[in-house]
Amino acid sequence: MRRLLGAGGAVLLGAAVIALVGVGFSAQAYSSPRGVQKATSLGTDMTCGKALPHVTLSFATYADASGTNDVGQQVHPGGNPSWPSYGPTNIFQAPAHACVTMHITQYDSGGSLNNPVFAKVQGTIGDTESVVSSGNSVSGCDGTSPLTYDGTPISAIQPCDAGHTFSLRGLPGIAPGFFVNVPLPLAGNAAGDNVGDLNSDAHQTVTFSFIAGPKGTYAWNCEYPCGLSVAGFGAVMGAYGYMSGYLHVV
């Protein structure tokens, strides 16, 4: 009996150790310290072509994750200052089968995509996005100067004008084939410049709508090579929570 108690105790102890280590690791996991941004309801309307509950989400991309050069806004507390980041959070929440309108403010500079496919808008209503430029003075890669957009729906940007992309996919078994890709054209801020100040910094505001799929977790990431190393997908791109995240559809 004493032996059995001892063995049982050892099992419990082992389980406790495992659980503790697990908790330690998961602290840095999904449950982002930056919280989950819930979509704001706009009632029911025809934005998506038929009468659907309409919700909206607004977020931005910053050139500087930690905000150390910024007016004080920390988009990724403790983050690497030379890394770009989505903010204020990387985890969003929207209701199932609703019409979701997203406003993404792009403060970062950019360049060429690895694959021009991601310069095309895909999976949004009408396969278009609309971009409104503010204070941008940088030239487009085809000589357009400055690179500005006036809000007309467009179905693609120049692959060499990309700042980031927002590429959202369904997970297998939940929404197979669900795919939304939205290129965000670059803005005139150099990396590490003071960014995130809505009033003064150059930015591009991208607006698009899509119909959310069934309940489940959807993953999104950026397809613009904004990291270091092979194909620009090292460093920040390999670190969860900067240019990658989830959309919880509830």
């Binding site: 999976g123 396969d127 369904g170 929404a175 669900f178």
Partner: peptide, 14 residues
């Protein structure tokens, strides 16, 4: 025609 055939077949989200 990027409107995705497979997505349609599965009664997907579009």
């Amino acid at each position: 025609g990027r409107v995705l055939t497979s997505a349609k077949i599965t009664g997907g989200v579009r």
